[in-house]
Design a protein around this nucleic acid. Structure first.
Length: 466
RNA sequence: GUGGCUAUAGUUCAAUGGUAGAACACGGGUUUGUGGCACCUGUGACGAGGGUCCGAUUCCCUCUAGCCACCCCA
């Protein structure tokens, strides 16, 4: 009996509710997707600007590739043994029956573009960088999203260790200049030939003394499918055997070993600190020789501390139908970088700090203020306004919020007198100025301070401590 | 994909088996031509669905989402 009774109660409740129920359903974000709100975006600008500046000073040019490409592109490059392709791709059949995928990784698209546009005809090396979204259907966590942003830099056509070193140096500088403490993990996984030899050594190692039986379930599979990944396992029983495991650097062929040594020598000379990590192998199929990862210092235990990684991929361009072209590159996860920037508490200058605020009272004044605003803006001054509000109080509140240096106040009285008020927002002192001389007056007052438009930038250390 | 924890205003947090308070933020006012401080005041929330109960925001289940660990990556 309670059931129907209850329903009526509920219905009545709804009817009685004084608050009007919402007319339309509201939506929420898809899982693992993220909004970047203006406040947070200021930090993004810092990171993006740093990446762009750095890329350009090392001679990289910006490229943009489609977010949607043939799924086959990723299957053939990133590889069918990688998790990215096998379980994380946003792949679907489009209306023309083609199997397509949202970009899970930046390198394949760039390689495709390199081949498709015949960039091997350009003077080599060809250096390209991309900032864009990648999509992977993973279970989200902090610092891990289904859509994330990477800064990706790729260098084609340079076989020498100088390319590897420069790539790593650039990555290192990116973090150092953003005041983020990182550690570079580096290893060489050799070329096709010497890796083959190493892998068989590795497999033999596990076959000996019944080591195989002590491995975890996943590693038993890895032993057959992708033995290199055994080095990556975090299961305690597998980790315990890694101490005695043969190291790949001991199996490198002469060319690979010399290449690696040269890379390390460059890094030493450039004072780039690194940690030789014989267990570092990367999850993508196309790497050879140098591989590296950037870990943030302080929380090495957590794998989320990986801020970026990369390496050399000398066979991929040919594998993707291009002329044989050596290449190397790296990607950085911007969400994680931004999180780190926030952690370091770098204060950001507000983009409106020290602006000139124009306040108006009355319709006539508003029209005149509009023109004044445009005039000052075109003169390159950082001017702000809130012409949508009528009350002076609301406008000055806004000026205060923005951190304005001066407010110009234009009302009916000033229009009749041909004047304008200039108010110093710190002292509150106001002066009546001849309207025609306002621009000169502002410029005079700003001559030592600055109020030109510029991007949000981190304060220098001295300013921060002040 | 597996396991654990969590879910209350825009945000950070309370309380309660009888439908909820604060702080900050936001709006209005004290000041119809003057911001920061103060005071007054207003708007605003129990993630969704089901169950137990006279009654559930509270207890139980399912879902969803977030966080953490694993997997993997950035």
């Amino acid at each position: 009996m309670p059931r129907p009774a209850k329903k009526t109660i509920k219905k009545e409740k709804e009817k009685d509710a004084t608050a009007p129920s919402r007319k339309y359903k509201s939506f929420s974000r898809l899982r693992g997707m993220k909004d970047i709100l203006p406040e947070e975006y200021r930090y993004w600008e810092v990171a993006k600007k740093k990446a762009e500046d750095l890329a350009r000073s090392y001679g990289f040019k910006r490229i943009e590739t489609p977010i949607l490409e043939s799924a086959d592109l990723y299957e053939r490059s990133t590889g069918n043994s990688s998790d990215i392709v096998t379980k994380e791709m946003y792949a679907f059949i489009d209306k023309s029956g083609e199997k397509v995928s949202l970009r899970p990784e930046a390198t394949p698209g760039i390689v495709r573009a390199y081949v498709e546009h015949g960039m091997f005809n350009l003077p080599q090396p060809v250096k390209l960088f991309l900032i864009g979204s990648l999509f992977r259907h993973e279970k989200p966590q902090s610092g891990r999203y289904r859509q994330h942003t990477q800064i990706d830099m790729e260098m084609f056509g340079e076989p020498g260790p100088v390319a590897d070193a420069q790539t790593i140096l650039m990555t290192y500088n990116f973090f150092r200049e953003l005041q983020i403490n990182v550690q570079i993990q580096i290893n060489s996984i050799g070329c096709k030939e010497c890796r083959k030899i190493y892998v068989s050594k590795l497999v033999d190692f596990y076959k000996e003394r019944g080591r195989r039986s002590k491995l975890c379930v996943d590693c038993k599979k890895r032993l057959v499918k992708n033995p290199l990944r055994l080095l990556d396992c975090k299961e305690e029983k597998c980790v315990s055997m890694l101490g005695e495991v043969p190291q790949i650097v001991d199996s490198l062929c002469d060319d690979c070993r010399n290449h690696f040594i040269k890379v390390l020598e460059y890094l030493d000379e450039l004072d780039v600190p690194y940690n030789l990590n014989p267990l570092l192998v990367r999850g993508l199929d196309y790497y050879n020789r140098t591989v590296f990862e950037i870990w943030s210092v302080g929380d090495e235990q957590s794998r989320q501390s990986s801020l970026g990684g990369g390496g050399r991929y000398d066979d991929l361009v040919e594998h993707m139908g291009g002329r044989p072209t050596p290449a190397c590159g790296f990607g950085l996860g911007l969400e994680r970088v931004v999180a780190k920037i926030k952690e370091t508490n770098i204060p950001l200058r507000s983009e409106s700090e020290d602006c000139i605020f124009i306040a108006q009272l009355g319709e006539q004044a508003r029209r005149k203020a509009f023109l004044l605003f445009e005039e000052l803006r075109r003169a390159g001054l950082k001017v702000r306004q809130l012409f949508t509000k009528d009350s002076l109080k609301a406008q000055l509140e806004e000026a205060n919020r923005l951190g304005a240096k001066f407010s110009l106040i234009l009302g009916q009285k000033e229009i009749l007198d041909g004047t304008i008020l200039i108010r110093d927002m710190e002292s509150g002192i106001q002066e009546v100025v001849d309207y025609k001389k306002i621009k000169a007056e502002i410029e005079k007052r700003l001559s030592n301070g600055e109020s030109k438009e510029k991007m949000a930038v981190p304060l220098d250390k001295e300013e921060k401590s002040a």
